[in-house]
């Protein structure tokens, strides 16, 4: 096992989070079982108070998840000197079977925590807690995932061996590598480019239509959810090479390094933030029926859609800027 303060910080924070979310999970189970809004019993009052605890814990979970996602990538990046063959985070993550699953879980948990908090926010706007059912159902999904993330992260760091042989991002994000990455990397640039712009245009258009006409929130949510993987695939397929100005270098982690002005951070933040806001906007569409939420849902949806459109637009602008001014040309002359 490799031991250093950043690994310690990651393990400690995920341990804390697991304990707290575990507590929230148990409270949530109690709430879901015993909830009776019409009752004025001591138990019901107690449960209503407990909802504040659960939402406070989830607030903290969201912040810690976001920080630990970036700290995890950064730590993996700084570990590459300790592993033979690794040149950035890609190699460190591939050093054993747990690296990439942890990363995927970190992203998924961040998204789920964000969606949970949006639902919670809407729920607290109504007098009769209409979303208590779906909210605690979602919590039952999130809690095991956070536990799984903590366990896999521990396994990942425990089974890292100094000087272990791994691959560098140059060979990992290469057409001869694993089935998924090789498909992504060997996508024809013109096709990847048009897929990216078509998807982003659809998201932005549906968002603007929703903002103007208050219709199609579900479509917007689904498109936002689709834009997230499309964005990541595009980052690997052509956006990163444009930043490196090297058509063969597809690594999605190196763009976070100082040599490229840490441009990866705003890109990923815009993509993740847009994803959370857009998906939540779509999720809220299914809660419109509740009587007590008649005014709250549209107001929150409007704000979410505006945030999602702004972040996705920022992402597209950042990418387009680089495409226009990079000295690399992968499409046309």
């Amino acid at each position: 096992m490799i031991l250093n303060p950043s690994i310690l910080a990651l393990l400690l924070s995920s341990l804390l989070l697991t304990l707290l979310v575990g507590h929230a999970f148990l409270t949530g189970v109690r709430i879901a079982d015993k909830w009776d809004i019409t009752s004025g019993s001591e138990l019901q009052l107690d449960l209503e108070r407990s909802t504040y605890l659960v939402s406070t814990i989830m607030n903290m979970a969201l912040v810690v998840q976001l920080l630990s996602l970036f700290l995890f990538i950064f730590t993996a990046d700084s570990l590459h000197t300790r592993l033979s063959g690794a040149m950035c985070a890609a190699g460190s993550l591939a050093a054993n079977a747990y690296g990439y699953p942890v990363l995927v879980l970190k992203i998924a948990n961040f998204l789920l925590c964000g969606i949970w908090l949006v639902i919670n926010h809407v729920d607290s706007r109504a007098y009769d807690y209409p979303l208590i059912g779906p909210k605690y159902l979602l919590l039952r999904v999130i809690a095991p995932l956070i536990l799984m993330e903590a366990a896999l992260q521990l396994l990942y760091f425990m089974s890292l061996r100094s000087r272990a042989l791994t691959t560098c991002c140059g060979s990992q994000f290469d057409s001869g590598s694993g089935p998924i990455t090789s498909v992504i990397v060997s996508l024809p640039p013109a096709f990847a480019l048009s897929l990216f712009y078509a998807c982003m245009a659809a998201v932005l258009a549906s968002g603007i239509i929703f903002l103007a006409a208050r219709r199609g929130a579900l479509v917007f949510g689904i498109l936002s959810a689709a834009a997230l993987p499309v964005g990541i695939v595009s980052l690997v397929a052509f956006i990163s090479p444009y930043y490196y100005e090297l058509p063969t270098h597809h690594c999605p982690f190196c763009i976070m390094q100082g040599e490229y002005g840490h441009i990866g951070y705003p890109l990923y933040l815009a993509l993740l933030g847009g994803g959370v806001a857009g998906i939540s906007c779509g999720v809220l569409a299914s809660f419109r029926g509740a009587e007590s939420l008649r005014s709250a849902v549209p107001a929150v949806q409007k704000r979410l859609a505006a945030v999602a459109v702004a972040l996705y637009a920022a992402f597209v602008l950042l990418v387009s800027w680089q495409l226009a001014f990079s000295s690399l040309r992968m499409v046309g002359g």
Partner: peptide, 18 residues
């Protein structure tokens, strides 16, 4: 600074949360 923050602040916040 990020490592230091993650190492020290979440335990404190977690302690005062409940």
């Amino acid at each position: 600074l990020a490592v230091l923050f993650m190492l020290t602040v979440p335990p404190y916040i977690a302690a005062i949360l409940i």
